[in-house]
Amino acid sequence: MSARLLIGGLALALLAGCEGRPAPTGLQGDPARGRIALAQHACRACHMIPGLTGPESYVGRPLVDLAERRFIAGKLPNTQANLVRWIRDPKSIDPHTAMPAMGVSERDALDMTAWLLAPEQ
């Protein structure tokens, strides 16, 4: 079984039975696709993310209240554009971060941020 097929199956299993979020006002991207991208990139392996299930071991900060935070990584103002930058290339912002570059495309990063910054139901 290929890794891509396994990851896709895992993503679908994580998403089964969960409701979507409304599209956030003023943000680009598709929150429903963002939720899938967060699962496909295994973000839940390190972060607690609202609406996604996963392991109970966390390396990274929980992302539950991300929309209310003033800064990303303690350095950047919390905007969608900065969050996209952080997701795509965290080491360019903080060379000492433990967060790896996961090869996230611009489109996936926009969609992920739409999910993360959308109001919870």
Rank of each mutant, 00 (worst) to 15 (best):
Q80M: 08
P50G: 10
P95A: 05
C43F: 12
I7P: 00
A101E: 14
L63R: 02
M1D: 07
V64Q: 10
H47S: 11
P62N: 02
P31Q: 09
A16M: 08
D89A: 14
P62I: 08
R107P: 00
P119A: 12
L63D: 01
L12V: 10
E106T: 10
N82H: 15
G26P: 15
R4Q: 09
V64E: 11
L83T: 00
P31Y: 12
C18D: 13
G34H: 01
T113G: 06
D65F: 12
P62C: 05
C43H: 09
R107M: 05
D108S: 06
C46P: 00
N78H: 14
R69P: 04
K91N: 02
S92A: 13
A3C: 02
A98P: 04
L15G: 15
G8D: 15
G8P: 00
L52Q: 12
D111W: 03
L52H: 13
L66V: 13
T25A: 15
R61G: 01
P50Y: 14
Q40L: 15
L117Q: 11
K75C: 03
E68Y: 04
S57L: 13
V84T: 03
A109D: 03
P90Q: 05
Y58I: 06
G26D: 11
L83F: 10
P55G: 15
W86I: 05
A32I: 04
P95F: 00
Q40T: 14
G51F: 14
L83I: 00
L38I: 00
A23E: 13
K75R: 15
L116N: 01
L76G: 13
I7K: 06
I49L: 14
M1L: 04
S57K: 11
